[in-house]
C-alpha cells in the first residue's frame, strides 16, 4: 500500500549530496514504498534544501528495526553530551 503516512519538519543541518556539501532546511519522514531498499515498505527520510533544487537531498531507506535503533542511538548520544555543547551550534 501507499501509506501516505508522512511527517515534515524544519531543521538546521548540512548534508552531502552528489554536488558536495550543502545546507539542509527540511526533513520528510515517511513509511512507504522504497526506491532501492529490498522491501515492500520502509521507513524513509529525505533531508532536503528545497531552495537548492530537487537534487539537494540526502535520502535514507531502512527497515523499521533499523529506524528505531538509529533514532534511539541519536537520542542516546545527545543525552550524553554536556548541555553547553548542545547549544553551541544553535
Amino acid at each position: 500500500m501507499c501509506t501516505y503516512q508522512t511527517e515534515t519538519l524544519d531543521l538546521r543541518a548540512s548534508g552531502k549530496t552528489p554536488e558536495g556539501w550543502t545546507s539542509m532546511r527540511t526533513a520528510t519522514v515517511y513509511f512507504d514504498h522504497p526506491v532501492h531498499f529490498a522491501a515492500g515498505h520502509a521507513l524513509m527520510v529525505d533531508v532536503r534544501n528545497p531552495e537548492a533544487g530537487a537534487a539537494a537531498r540526502v535520502a535514507l531507506e531502512m527497515d523499521a528495526a533499523s529506524a528505531r535503533d538509529l533514532a534511539q542511538a541519536i537520542l542516546r548520544v545527545l543525552s550524553q553530551v554536556p548541555e553547553d555543547l548542545l547549544s553551541e551550534a544553535s
Partner: peptide, 20 residues
C-alpha cells in the same frame, strides 16, 4: 511542476514534501 528535469526519486520526494 515540482521538479522539472529532476531524477524521478528526487521529484517524488519533493512532491511528497509538498503534500502530493
Amino acid at each position: 511542476r515540482e521538479a522539472p528535469g529532476a531524477a524521478p526519486d528526487d521529484a517524488a520526494a519533493v512532491a511528497r514534501a509538498n503534500g502530493g
